[in-house]
């Protein structure tokens, strides 16, 4: 059992507060992705779990045991680094065996585990090579094999795919997901790539400015963003937002049209809808003037203007529209979301 509990963890570097009081529980064998733009604190949080950085305050527990005072080696973790950190002076075999030798396993067991993980990562023919003789993708595999070989409770990954080219990244994404699911470890995975996060995670924790804004399943994060930031960060193209004014309780006017909405004591809210949740319809209540048409093959992306707000729509690929057209759009009623413009949170 390796549940990770992060309790009120805060970190500052001098005056700069990298993390404000983070609380997060990662369940046993879960694949959790920490997602955010650079500088949001995701790598700092990962390094605090690893023990490479100490938190200014707060506690970290793994498997019910408080570990934030322990050195990395006593935490039952292994880690895959962004630049792989495959030791250049050791062969692939010795790299994978490094943690096993440190744990003083006997040679037979070292052999068994190195071979098993090398086979798992398809690098069994590279065992006698040095890092300098490997491609980026192969180094990546060695780094993962090394992490798996110690049979850790927790694997921590710091942007492990960011140095690979796009095609390889897609391949490794699927492979890593499969291997980690097999391995019964709890995984914490840091990335700034939302596609990676969506495709791999059991749960995504979205971070911004040293806080976790939302931690939920990929679908939940996508469908029900907890905050304006999440909606605009997740999804490509991102969610559309339009200002809404209260007409009466539960009734709001958006760009001249009236919508049923939440009852709120606020007079203004933001109306939000994803670009693909709009239908072309003669009686569509939103009038959008097309400013740019991008035919993308599987669909057409139209950038429009509604009362000087940028508003994107994803349409069927055979839709014929052109710049200057006015579209009548009907939002799917169950996909409309509302945000409070003051605290940016979902209503």
């Amino acid at each position: 059992m390796a549940e990770i509990q992060i309790k009120q963890v805060a970190k500052s570097f001098g005056k700069f507060e990298a993390l404000h009081s983070i609380d997060l529980t990662i369940t046993d064998q879960e694949f959790l992705v920490l997602l955010g733009a650079s500088g949001c604190g995701k790598t700092t949080l990962l390094r605090i779990i690893a023990g490479l950085e100490t938190a200014t305050s707060g506690e970290v527990h793994i498997g019910g045991k408080r570990i934030d005072h322990l050195p990395p080696k006593d935490r039952g973790i292994s880690m895959v680094f962004q630049n792989y950190a495959v030791f250049p002076h050791l062969t692939v075999y010795e790299n994978i065996a490094f943690g096993l030798r440190m744990a003083k396993l006997d040679q037979a067991e070292v052999d068994r585990r190195v071979n098993r993980t090398a086979t798992l990562m398809h690098i069994e023919q590279l065992l006698q090579r040095y890092s300098g003789q490997l491609s980026g993708g192969q180094r990546q595999r060695v780094a993962v094999a090394r992490a798996l070989a110690t049979e850790p409770d927790v694997i921590l990954m710091d942007e492990p795919l960011s140095n690979l080219d796009a095609l390889l990244r897609m391949e490794m994404r699927a492979e890593l997901k499969g291997i980690l699911a097999e391995s019964n470890t709890t995984t914490v995975y840091v990335t700034h790539d939302q596609v990676e996060a969506m495709s791999m995670a059991d749960r995504i924790a979205i971070m911004q400015g040293g806080d976790i804004i939302q931690a939920a399943t990929p679908v939940e994060v996508y469908r029900n963003p907890a905050a304006h930031f999440v909606g605009s960060f997740i999804g490509n193209p991102p969610m559309n937002f339009l200002p809404a004014k209260k007409v009466s309780d539960g009734l709001w006017t958006v760009a001249g049209a009236q919508f049923d909405g939440p009852s709120s004591n606020k007079n203004e809210l933001n109306f939000a809808i994803r670009p693909e949740d709009l239908l072309l319809s003669d009686n569509g209540p939103l009038q959008a003037k097309v400013t740019l048409v991008e035919p993308l093959g599987s669909h057409v992306l139209a950038s429009c203007n509604i009362e000087n707000n940028l508003f994107r729509v994803v349409l069927e690929s055979d839709t014929s529209i052109s710049r200057g057209d006015v579209l009548n759009l009907k939002p799917m009623p169950d996909r409309v979301r509302w945000f409070d413009p003051d605290n940016q949170l979902a209503v």
């Binding site: 690893a50 023990g51 490479l52 050195p71 990395p72 080696k73 973790i77 292994s78 880690m79 680094f81 962004q82 630049n83 950190a85 030791f87 250049p88 002076h89 050791l90 490094f98 943690g99 440190m102 744990a103 090394r146 110690t150």
Partner: peptide, 29 residues
Amino acid sequence: IPKEYYEAAQVYGANTWQRFTKITLPLLK
């Protein structure tokens, strides 16, 4: 010597002396 090597060694159980003999010395050769 990139500091990630030291961090990786630390994660995989090398103490200060082992990091010196297994990372610093060979890479400093």
